[in-house]
């Protein structure tokens, strides 16, 4: 007895192309409709742009912060009107973003600066970032206050320390003719940085103070 006609199996190449097409459609759907399943960190950064309303920015530099999480990346982004420090990390939902801190640089100023403090577990990372619009500035001094809490009683202040960092222009970054800086400091103490007590001072080549900005834009993020 003759068997029923068997179905011809498509070639491996053809089957793979069909599967790739289905995967691409699913990826597109999940990315655009559910806003998750992002395969690349920059996609999460683009989503952060949407969330903060900055519009399209370009990457100035990227920092890996394994002190917080092995996959955590911090991006300094910018365009003509915005300087934006934002982050992303890998989770079971793909790359996810957290907004960070954004500076509106559309008003004229010698210096635009902000900070972002991130706590996760025992690690604590502080970023001070900004844009230097005055070409006379060649050196920056960042000053800030850190509050260290008692090991036994976490709400009791053990000491307050004033810290100072100097950033020479060799460490700055340049993009589209604009100069940016990013300072990172890591702490494992039970401490916090006070956003109100940070300032950035710009000096010229004669070591004279050109501009001083008190940091007003900041973000404080804590992960459990």
């Amino acid at each position: 007895m003759k068997q029923t006609k068997r179905q011809v199996l498509p070639s491996r190449r053809r089957r793979t192309l069909r599967r790739l097409l289905i995967a691409a459609a699913a990826l597109c759907l999940v990315n655009r409709i559910f806003l998750i399943g992002l395969l690349f960190p920059i996609q999460a950064i683009r989503q952060n742009e949407e969330r903060t309303g900055t519009g399209r920015t370009t990457v100035i530099c990227r920092d890996w912060a394994p002190e917080l999480q092995w996959s955590r990346l911090t991006y300094l982004m910018g365009n003509e009107h915005v300087t934006f420090l934002t982050g992303t990390y890998l989770s079971y939902l793909g790359w996810l973003g957290d907004s960070g801190a954004v500076l509106d640089c559309s008003e004229e100023a010698a210096l635009h600066c902000g900070l972002w403090s991130i706590n996760q577990g025992d690690g604590k990372v502080l970023y001070v970032f900004g844009r230097i619009d005055d070409p006379a500035i060649v050196r920056l001094k960042i000053q800030g206050r850190q509050t260290v809490f008692s090991e036994e009683q976490t709400d009791q202040v053990a000491e307050e320390t004033y810290q100072e960092w100097t950033l020479e222009q060799e460490k700055w970054m340049e993009k589209d003719g604009r100069r940016y800086f990013l300072m990172k400091t890591v702490s494992y103490e039970k401490s916090s940085w006070s956003g109100q007590d940070f300032s950035v001072t710009g000096y010229n080549k004669y070591d004279e103070m050109v501009a001083e900005e008190k940091i007003e834009e900041g973000a404080f993020t804590s992960f459990v």
């Binding site: 793979t16 599967r19 995967a23 999940v30 559910f34 998750i36």
Partner: peptide
């Protein structure tokens, strides 16, 4: 591609 599709479907369910 099949694995990616399965993972994406699970993510879509979690993110419904």
């Amino acid at each position: 591609a099949v694995l990616l599709t399965v993972v994406l479907c699970i993510q879509a369910l979690l993110g419904v």
